Amino acid sequence: MAHTTKLNTDLTGKTALVTGGTKGIGKAIADELAAAGARVIISARNAPSAESTHHFIAADLTNAQQASSLARQINDEFGGIDMLINNVGGLTTPGGGYSALTDKHWEDELQLNLIAAIRLDREFIPVMTARRNAVIIHISSIAARQALWNLNLAYAVSKSALNSYSKALATELASKGVRVLTVSPGATKTPPMEKFIADYAAAQNIPEESALAQLLQQTGGIPMGRMAEPEEVASLVHYLVSPAASYLTGSIYAIDGGALPVVS
């Protein structure tokens, strides 16, 4: 049967959960999906600082009980979801290489950037397979393919593991009506990124502009000459969850202004 959905990015009638959806990339994704017609639920540890039109549920997804409670509440109140955007995550560990990282650092980074997504996937997949035409998006990072030992070792490893998990899950669910895709942003203008630059500048006792230049130099720079806007990442996610991308699953999409110096 021929498919005629290639230009259809309308999400009317769909329900989405965006974790870490109160600021930065998560907020931009939530706003984008809602503008396309989706009913959007957002989750984070703390409520949005500004008024939001999205349904908010507080949850710390590094806590297994809170993750299960979030899923139960959504399944009971909304009858499940069609789109799960696993956006929660971040770089929380110190730089300095292997000797600066304790077991606790590694465990915390894996909980935040890998296990939180695995937990929610496990909670929602049974309902999503029953609904069919569902999509899971894992927000990763180009750091997964370009680890910097002195800056983001544990974070990069956790995101690399997320990429491998996402690929395997996509293969498992491909025949069950659930697509699984990974989006890997590069440097993006978000509050966590701004704080990271400010902290690095303070540690090096240099201006923030110089800190940013040093950080980008370590990764080879950004050919497009600027960081991404959160809304640009959101636009990619919108396309991937839409009917227009109905034949896409298992792929990793870097959105980095050409920063990764590799072919694939």
Rank of each mutant, 00 (worst) to 15 (best):
H3K: 14
H3C: 13
T4H: 15
K6D: 11
L7A: 13
T12C: 08
K14Q: 15
K14F: 01
G21N: 06
G21V: 13
G24P: 05
I25C: 04
G26W: 00
G26H: 07
I29W: 09
I29H: 07
D31W: 04
L33T: 02
A34N: 07
A36V: 00
A36D: 05
R39D: 13
R39C: 07
V40R: 03
V40H: 10
I42S: 02
S43Y: 01
R45P: 11
N46V: 11
N46Y: 12
N46F: 12
A47S: 14
P48E: 14
H55S: 09
I57L: 15
A58W: 04
A59W: 10
L61W: 04
T62I: 09
Q66N: 03
A67H: 04
A67I: 01
L70Q: 06
A71C: 08
I74N: 02
D76T: 14
G80M: 00
I81K: 02
I81A: 04
L84C: 06
I85E: 04
N86R: 08
V88L: 03
G89Y: 06
G90V: 03
L91M: 12
T93F: 01
T93I: 06
P94G: 11
S99Q: 13
H105K: 00
H105I: 07
W106F: 12
E107T: 13
E107Q: 15
N113F: 07
I115F: 12
I118N: 05
L120F: 07
D121I: 02
D121L: 00
E123N: 10
E123G: 07
F124H: 02
I125A: 03
M128C: 06
R131H: 04
R132Y: 00
A134H: 04
H138G: 05
A144R: 13
L148V: 09
L148F: 00
N150I: 04
L151T: 02
L153Y: 01
A154G: 06
S160G: 15
S164H: 09
A168V: 12
A168G: 13
E172N: 13
G177Q: 12
R179G: 07
R179N: 10
V180S: 08
V180N: 11
V183T: 11
P185F: 05
G186W: 06
T190N: 08
P191M: 11
P192I: 09
E194V: 08
E194L: 14
K195D: 10
F196L: 14
A198G: 07
D199K: 15
A201M: 09
A203I: 08
N205P: 01
I206P: 03
I206W: 11
P207T: 04
E208F: 01
E208Y: 03
S210V: 15
S210F: 01
L212A: 05
L216A: 01
I222F: 06
G225Q: 04
R226I: 02
E232N: 03
E232T: 02
E232M: 02
L236M: 15
Y239S: 03
P243C: 09
A245Q: 10
A245P: 08
A245R: 11
S246A: 15
S246G: 12
L248P: 01
T249W: 14
T249Q: 07
I252E: 15
I252L: 14
Y253D: 06
I255V: 15
I255L: 14
I255A: 12
D256P: 10
G257I: 13
G257T: 11
A259F: 00
L260E: 14
P261C: 02
V263A: 12
V263Y: 10
